[in-house]
Design a protein around this nucleic acid. Structure first.
Lengths: 216, 216
DNA sequence: ATAAAAATCAAACAAACGTTTGTCAAGTTT
DNA sequence: AAACTTGACAAACGTTTGTTTGATTTTTAT
């Protein structure tokens, strides 16, 4: 492959990713992708086997990147506070660096798309199990699987949702979502989540025995 | 209109809502809707002016119902704890009673859909401003608009996200999401959020002066 | 009973869909 | 030099898209 040829394949991916994020996978046509990527329509099937092939690569790439990030966080064995802060910070950084990748993967996740059902089935469980590890690996006494199934996705949901609805939020609150906003967002969400799970531990799991910890 | 005619229009709406929720708006064709609703294809344009007309009704209905719920909660002026609990409980109940309506509205919200841009622009701000009221109306000293813009959508995001990804969550954690699950979910999320914003108030806004409140 | 209105239908519309074909030039391998 | 591979292209493939038409039935109003 020459440099220009690599660029052709990459241009298709970039254009598709941007359009999928903007309008949703099904609302984007191959001709629109080809036009934006400045390639012939047939090149999409040539390089990706079809439109759905691009979506597959997007989702694979998302999950692999995401898994990599969580693996790095697992390496640093620190306090709960630091763990949550760095997991939120990493997620925000990941979202800032790959906003469209995240949006597409996250938006298409709940839909019945038979052609990517296998991908979802194999990759999604990892995603949440890794977040749940955060809770179980520290001395937070949460053994109920249902409880973890509520809290794990919650953290992911809080962060992703803010990015997913940024345009809407900007309009509704008339705020700028700049770097300063993101730094504040990391602090706010990690504090909210940390205080939140402590509150759950104290009030819902051990309403009595942890009172000494609260004042200690 | 006879009863059967009302049913025809309603059947179109029901079928479309179900299909939109399952596959996404753009992935559903009018013939599929007509087949499921057991009506002629032309009846869709006849009653709704076109496919996008159904989506408009869905989104309008969602926001109006949602606004109504929040209005009812505003009426009961109780403690922060009760307010948050009832707001979460109402959201969960609303989601349980109108899962598809919520899913469609929520999923299509971030997309560039020129034909419903006007609807979004007029209805969305209400949605979040109403959640923010919860924070400002009680004695939680949050004046920073950016902070409210982070926390307001967070609560909505936490609850909606759990429902949006229920199928995925069920598979990943092998849990049943029955009524008991939902009751627990309400307690968990409201506790998480309540403890969370208290934590933010104590640690991020007033790191010193609120220490006496914490032990009182 | 008759006229008007509303609801339903089969059929067709142009446009867009994703994919495939056959051709051709450029580069690589033998 | 000949055979082969790769990337790119215009063009066409058969479907499917959302919408509209005009005729027909059903319901409502006079």
């Amino acid at each position: 492959m020459t440099i220009e040829q690599i660029e052709a394949k990459q241009r298709i991916f970039d254009a598709a990713l941007r359009l999928f994020a903007m309008k949703g996978y099904s609302a984007v046509g191959v001709r629109e992708i080809a036009r934006e990527a400045d390639v012939n329509i047939s090149m999409i099937s040539y390089y990706y086997g079809g439109k759905v092939g691009i979506l597959r690569v997007i989702i694979e790439q998302f999950f692999d990147s995401y898994k990599q990030i969580l693996k790095e966080i697992k390496g640093q064995n620190t306090s709960v506070e630091d763990s949550i802060y760095s997991i939120v910070a990493s997620m925000v950084q990941f979202l800032k660096e790959n906003p469209e990748l995240c949006m597409v993967a996250f938006s298409e996740l709940p839909y019945d798309e038979p052609e990517i059902a296998d991908l979802k089935a194999s990759k999604v469980p990892d995603m949440y199990q890794n977040v749940s590890w955060l809770i179980t690996s520290h001395n937070i006494p949460m053994t109920d699987t249902r409880l973890i199934s509520m809290i794990g996705p919650t953290l992911v949901g809080m962060v992703f949702n803010n990015f997913r609805l940024r345009k809407v939020i900007q309009k509704a609150f008339n705020v700028e979502t700049d770097d300063e906003y993101d730094e504040m967002f990391i602090k706010v969400i990690s504090t909210l989540f940390l205080s939140g799970i402590k509150g759950i531990s104290e009030r819902l799991i051990n309403p009595e025995e942890d009172k000494n910890n609260e004042n200690g």
